[in-house]
Design a protein around this nucleic acid. Structure first.
Lengths: 342, 342
DNA sequence: GGCAATTGCTAAATGGTTTTAGCAGGGGAT
DNA sequence: ATCCCCTGCTAAAACCATTTAGCAATTGCC
């Protein structure tokens, strides 16, 4: 049961100097006008008393609080949110900042409340994260706080961190091409509306653009494109089941791991072996992908790296440009070994 | 580009009253000494100017900030963290509080830093969340901030929110008993060290205690108990595979869904059908459980409810007792239909 | 009418830090 | 001797809300 918090005045008194001097020394102002002796005395006093600055008082004076707000539409729904959050948190901690987490459910009223709550606490910056990459509504901000969009975009704020979906798409096709497969390749999860960028963000359309360009470059064609609106395992299962009544694919390019999971189930029931009969490659690096047998080769959504980068940009004041984060390949057992050349 | 934040003094000036009066009225003090007319004028002025109190100034004066800190060992690793966080966040929002999220990796040094960072910001309370329920180290706190443990316990702080594992264990057995199965029941994932509460917390030992008591009450016995240290799908797969070389179970009680997933894979390869040949019941309600075919019946870890409750307790000052949250049953298709009585 | 209590309000102090303006004293240039 | 600059430091204002103490005018009571 401490008596009271120790204040800057206490430190100054013990050091035999004024609070002004103590403040200047402790905040590391390179105001070299103060003697080395003074520096030593103040630091000694501060550590001996265990001084910790009162952040509220400092915030009141300086309008900055060494804290940022992470405002996301859903923290819940998606297993991905935690990657973004974790990365952001780590970067914030490195910069000795603290992170407020706020959830809006994508509702404008709550978005406004969240922004106000954050601004009331003089946060040094705002991150708007979207769990499904898309154009995000950001309520009007008073003041001029820096803003970085994460996994989404906004017309008003140019700074954004996004996965490099186009390259990711190309990579997936390259992996498939390397197995030597040349025909009976099926695309699972394509949706024409997405491809036009109507509902989901550009993310998926960029991914598909990368896929289509790479397919053309490798002289490949899809034997079938299976479309659906939602990308849950049962959709992948149903589509694959239906497909197998008509034809037997040699490779499947799945637009996410949950679809691929459904495909695994249907292929298994049909007695087809992965990767000997069918090769699969997919996107996201969902936790699932490592549980499957054989493991699913997949192009990761680099959520943690994205979260980190967003916070770094925010704190470095790089709030002008968009940054694309590479989607790393995670090789597991779902791809047929490449044919030995020669 | 606003000129400046509007301050309480501005509101008072517009209302033609003193800041004192404005403060009293806006903070809803039931100091009825101020006239109804004064109330009206101040409120009108406040809304017309869009007044928002400066939280830092208020915190400086009152030592409370309408914010809480959620300090967890890992936010990342586990898909469960997000449930706890989401629930906590929702409850905080309802109470018009804001939540700081801090991660410690279970390292004492970072735990200390996190606590200090939170205390520096005069949080109104601390939640210590453990991703794997266990006895948690909490660094010494100066001052007397309320603390609630979440999914873990601490010798120093009695308030804790935990899943009701004992009842959960009983429930799982009851579900199995209701299918009419009387023999060839296998327990998957038991570990003698856990049961003695040596490594994981009491959580698992309580769960097992519930299971054992209920088994005895129903006059049932396990035909085999398959032990392992880690509870990932491949462990479930390997153990089940080995089991199937020796005997064919009629029911499996799995200690988590990932083990159950592995069991599904092994049973599927052996040509056994769920639930006709084997019934399964499990724990956690991992996302996985809904993806499996047939869906996995499981006893949920009620993470969201736990998170909510922890924040409510914290803000209501109920920091003395431990609370157990019921683990709800999620019925899916992995249990054989009960034998019709009579 | 005199005294106390009540009503309706305000002045000023308070919280802890940063920052602006400036003071005292010594030294160099003129 | 005067003026100016430099060094090493400090007083006091500012940030904005809350709260204590108290003032002036009215009402209540005998």
């Amino acid at each position: 049961m401490q008596k009271k918090r120790v204040t800057l005045a206490d430190v100054a008194r013990l050091a035999g100097l004024s609070p002004t001097a103590a403040s200047m020394i402790l905040t590391g102002k390179h105001d070299t006008r103060l003697s080395a002796e003074a520096h030593a005395k103040v630091h000694a006093a501060a550590t001996s008393l265990g001084y910790r600055p009162n952040v509220a008082a400092r915030a009141l004076r300086t309008d900055r609080s060494r804290s940022i707000a992470f405002i996301s539409d859903y923290v819940a729904t998606t297993r991905f949110a935690s990657g973004l959050i974790r990365g952001a948190l780590a970067a914030a901690e490195e910069a000795k900042h603290v992170m407020l987490l706020l959830e809006t459910g994508g509702e404008p009223a709550r978005e406004l409340q969240a922004v106000e709550a954050a601004l009331d606490r003089q946060v040094d910056g705002l991150i708007f994260a979207a769990m499904r990459a898309r154009e995000v509504f950001v309520p009007p901000l008073s003041g001029n706080v820096p803003v970085v969009m994460l996994n989404g975009t906004s017309a008003r704020f140019p700074a954004a961190v996004l996965p490099d979906e186009y390259e990711g798409g190309r990579t997936a096709v390259r992996l498939l091409a390397q197995t030597g497969v040349t025909e009976d390749i099926v695309l699972l999860g394509h949706n024409p509306a997405d491809e036009k960028g109507l509902f989901r963000s550009h993310s998926i359309s960029r991914r598909l653009a990368g896929i289509r360009d790479a397919m053309a470059e490798h002289g490949l064609d899809f034997a079938a494109e299976l479309s659906c609106w939602n990308w849950e395992p049962n959709h992948g299962y149903d589509l694959t089941k239906a497909l197998l009544r008509r034809r037997r694919p040699k490779a499947m390019l799945c637009l996410n791991d949950r679809l691929a999971f459904g495909a695994y189930q249907a292929l298994g029931e049909a007695g087809l072996r992965i990767p000997d009969d069918v090769s699969l490659v997919s996107f996201d690096n969902d936790e699932l992908a490592s549980y499957l047998r054989p493991g699913l080769t997949t192009i990761s959504l680099p959520h943690e790296a994205m979260g980190r980068r967003a916070v770094q940009m925010l704190l470095d004041g790089k709030t002008a440009q968009e940054e694309l984060i590479t989607m790393p390949v995670v090789l597991r057992g779902s791809l047929h070994e490449p044919a030995q050349p020669g």
